[in-house]
Design a protein around this nucleic acid. Structure first.
Lengths: 107, 107
DNA sequence: GGGATCGATAACTCTTTGGCTATTGATCGA
DNA sequence: TCGATCAATAGCCAAAGAGTTATCGATCCC
C-alpha cells in the first residue's frame, strides 16, 4: 500500500534535506560546494541528500565541468498539494453528509 | 534549526501512520479497535502511531467507557499548506527578479 | 604531466524507529 | 464479583537512515 506520496513525505521529513531544498527554492541553482558550505554537514552527506531529493523528483542536476549545479523542481510538490486537498475534500464530504442528514431530520 | 514542520512531515512520512490519518479523514471518528482491524499491524503498533499523530496535533482522542475514539484534526495540516505556498512564493519571487532584470536589459 | 579541487561512492558507526509479544489498568457484562 | 474486552505501556529486536572518514574519477590550472 506504498503510494507515490511516500517518497515525497519521507524525503521532506529530514530537516537537513528539507533545508537544502528550501534553499534551492529561495536562491535558485546552487553547486554542491555552495550547499555544503552552509548545511552544517559534510560534503558526502550533502551529496547523499541531493541524491535522495533527485530520486523524489524534487531537484534536477546540471553538470558543468567538475561542478554539479542543482535546482529545485517545484512541480514535484504537486502530489503533496493534491494530498492535502484530498484530505480536506474527505472532511468536507463528511460534513456535507452530516448537513444532509440534519436537513432530512429537519423535515 | 528544527522548526514546526519537522514533526508534521516526519509524522506523515510513515505509510501505516498516514493511512490511519487518511482513514480518519475519510470516515471520521474511529475507535482504536476499528483502526487496528484494517491497519495490518498489531493494536499496540496502532496505539503508538495514534500517540505520535496526537503529538503532532493531527488527531484528537475522546474516551468513552473502555473505548478511545480518535478523530482527524484537519487544521493541523495548515503548516504544510503554508510551507508549500512559501516554496512557491520563493520560486515566484525569483522569477519576478529575472523578469525585472530582463526588463532593465530591454531598456 | 602533475598537483589541486569538485563531487560521488564505499564502508562503516550509531541512533532512530516501526514492529512484535507480554502485561497492566480500566471498564463492561453475566 | 469475576471473566472478558479495550487500549496503553513496557521491553525487546531488526531494519532503516543520517552521519562520518577515506577514496576515486574527473576536470581544471600551472
Amino acid at each position: 500500500m506504498t503510494n507515490a506520496h511516500d517518497m515525497l513525505f519521507r524525503t521532506l521529513a529530514d530537516p537537513t534535506r528539507r533545508a537544502i531544498f528550501e534553499r534551492l527554492c529561495r536562491e535558485g541553482e546552487q553547486t554542491v560546494g555552495a550547499l555544503t558550505a552552509q548545511s552544517g554537514v559534510s560534503q558526502p552527506a550533502v551529496s547523499k541528500h541531493l541524491g535522495l531529493l533527485r530520486q523524489a523528483g524534487l531537484v534536477r542536476d546540471r553538470h558543468e565541468g567538475r561542478q554539479t549545479h542543482y535546482s529545485a523542481q517545484l512541480a514535484a510538490l504537486a502530489p503533496l498539494t493534491d494530498w492535502t486537498n484530498q484530505m480536506n475534500a474527505f472532511w468536507q464530504s463528511r460534513f456535507d453528509d452530516l448537513e444532509n442528514l440534519l436537513k432530512r431530520m429537519d423535515q
